[in-house]
Simulated assay, not measured.
Amino acid sequence: MRGRRTADGAVDRWQRADWWGVVLDCPDALSLARFYSDLLGWPIWRPESADEHGAALDLGEGVGYLSFQRDPGYEAPVWPPEVGRPRMMMHLDFEVSDLDAAVDHALELGASLPEHQPQDGVRVLLDPVGHPFCLYS
Score class of each variant (00 low, 15 high):
residue 29 A to Y: 06
residue 39 L to W: 04
residue 36 Y to N: 03
residue 22 V to S: 05
residue 98 D to F: 03
residue 112 S to K: 01
residue 53 H to W: 03
residue 72 P to D: 12
residue 127 D to N: 07
residue 26 C to P: 05
residue 31 S to M: 11
residue 85 R to P: 00
residue 48 E to K: 04
residue 126 L to W: 05
residue 36 Y to Q: 02
residue 45 W to V: 00
residue 22 V to Q: 04
residue 112 S to T: 15
residue 130 G to H: 09
residue 98 D to Y: 02
residue 135 L to Y: 12
residue 63 V to C: 09
residue 110 G to L: 07
residue 113 L to F: 01
residue 62 G to I: 07
residue 15 Q to P: 00
residue 48 E to M: 01
residue 69 Q to P: 00
residue 79 W to C: 12
residue 131 H to K: 03
residue 14 W to Q: 09
residue 46 R to I: 05
residue 80 P to H: 10
residue 6 T to W: 00
residue 99 L to R: 05
residue 131 H to N: 14
residue 63 V to N: 15
residue 118 P to E: 08
residue 91 H to T: 10
residue 80 P to I: 15
residue 135 L to G: 11
residue 77 P to C: 15
residue 20 W to A: 07
residue 6 T to N: 14
residue 76 A to V: 11
residue 9 G to S: 01
residue 127 D to K: 07
residue 66 L to Q: 06
residue 127 D to Y: 02
residue 118 P to F: 12
residue 117 Q to G: 02
residue 132 P to N: 07
residue 101 A to Y: 08
residue 5 R to W: 00
residue 82 E to M: 14
residue 14 W to V: 02
residue 35 F to R: 04
residue 52 E to N: 08
residue 94 F to P: 01
residue 118 P to M: 09
residue 96 V to H: 11
residue 58 D to A: 14
residue 67 S to H: 14
residue 93 D to K: 03
residue 68 F to G: 15
residue 12 D to C: 04
residue 53 H to A: 13
residue 11 V to Q: 05
residue 31 S to C: 04
residue 8 D to A: 03
residue 34 R to Y: 02
residue 4 R to Q: 13
residue 98 D to E: 14
residue 114 P to S: 13
residue 13 R to F: 09
residue 24 L to Y: 06
residue 113 L to W: 02
residue 36 Y to M: 02
residue 23 V to I: 10
residue 48 E to T: 01
residue 114 P to E: 14
residue 9 G to P: 08
residue 21 G to E: 13
residue 38 D to M: 03
residue 87 R to Y: 01
residue 27 P to L: 05
residue 126 L to P: 11
residue 95 E to S: 08
residue 71 D to C: 11
residue 128 P to T: 07
residue 110 G to M: 07
residue 48 E to S: 10
residue 41 G to S: 13
